[in-house]
Amino acid sequence: MPDVFINYRTGDGNDIAALIDTELANRFGKDRAFRASRSIAPGALYPDALLMSVRRSALLLAVIGADWINFQSRLRDPEDWVRKEIEEAFSCGVPVVPVLAGRGTERLRKAELPDELARLAELQSVRLDTQNAEADLKRLGDLVAEMVPELYDLEHGEAPPPGPGSVSNSAGDVSGTAVQSRDFTGDVGNTVIKGATGPVHAGQGNIYQNSRHLSGDRHYSGNGMTNIEGNQRGDIRHRFEDSSRPEGDER
């Protein structure tokens, strides 16, 4: 979904609209701005695409070229798309910023506009001069970031607050390799440990180090056993006692 809708008239300000589109894409990422000639796919219903994009945007930039006001017959036509897009923004409560293209473009005057667009003359405008394009584009981008908090957060790397039930994982003071995954649901089947020195316990049960764990009955019941590993020096003696053995039984 685009955050900024770029409104312009072909033949009057479309080059400025393209500059704005490129600047916003470089600064905030692709498809954060909507510009009709780029954003509407071939074969798509452009009336639906235009109006839907205006409604879903957080800001509309109305590019006003030097001849914009001279298109009087179009501006007074309710079916003129430049007019319809601005009217749609007004009706949906989408903020509108007039962008005056070039040094020679004058501010709009209310008397020159149809009543439906008269509000444009009362809105604070910004100027974008191609001879000062770098500074003016940066200033416009700063304004956009200020008016659209989501773009400000995106540019400054501020993550949105975690949603309900989310889990955050973090690791600090780690020397070597640390493996961290997304939030877990249910059992976790794998544990990754690298470069460990000494015993490591990652689950339930006992831990045995440098020895073999033996199980079974070690009493005198026929099931006991003695296990000796490695080089041994000297005698090895092992004795089993069974308190349950009958007295006098010397087997």
Rank of each mutant, 00 (worst) to 15 (best):
N190F: 01
T10V: 03
D115M: 03
M52L: 12
L50G: 10
R239W: 06
D48Y: 00
I207D: 01
K138N: 13
I69M: 00
W81Q: 03
V174D: 07
D129E: 13
G222Q: 13
P47S: 05
S244R: 11
I69K: 02
T22V: 11
V200W: 11
V96E: 05
D173A: 12
E155K: 01
G198V: 11
A111R: 11
A18W: 13
S175D: 04
V82E: 04
G224L: 12
R218A: 06
C92T: 06
G234K: 15
R83Q: 09
G165S: 07
N206A: 09
D187L: 10
V63Q: 01
H156W: 02
P42G: 01
V126S: 14
D67Y: 04
Y8W: 01
P2I: 07
E23N: 02
E106Y: 06
V54Y: 10
V97R: 08
A18E: 15
N26M: 11
G198H: 14
E23A: 12
N223H: 05
H156G: 12
E122V: 02
E112L: 07
D142S: 04
E250C: 07
S215K: 05
H201T: 15
N7R: 10
R9N: 07
N227C: 09
Q131N: 07
F90A: 14
Q209S: 08
V126L: 15
I236V: 12
A58M: 02
N132G: 04
P114H: 09
T177Q: 15
S175V: 12
A171H: 08
L154G: 02
E146P: 01
A135W: 15
V96Q: 06
A41K: 13
S243Q: 11
S215T: 08
E79A: 15
T191H: 03
R139T: 14
R127Q: 04
L151M: 11
L117K: 08
K30L: 05
D21W: 15
N7K: 12
D48E: 01
N70Y: 12
L45F: 02
Q232I: 04
A89V: 00
V200A: 15
R38D: 11
D153E: 13
R27T: 04
S215L: 08
A145W: 03
H156Q: 06
R239I: 03
A121N: 05
D31W: 10
E146S: 06
D21S: 15
I207E: 08
D235T: 09
E134I: 10
I236F: 06
N223L: 00
T177D: 15
L108R: 04
S211Y: 09
D15A: 05
S170P: 02
R55F: 06
S125P: 08
G13I: 00
N14T: 03
R107W: 10
L117D: 06
A89P: 03
E229Q: 06
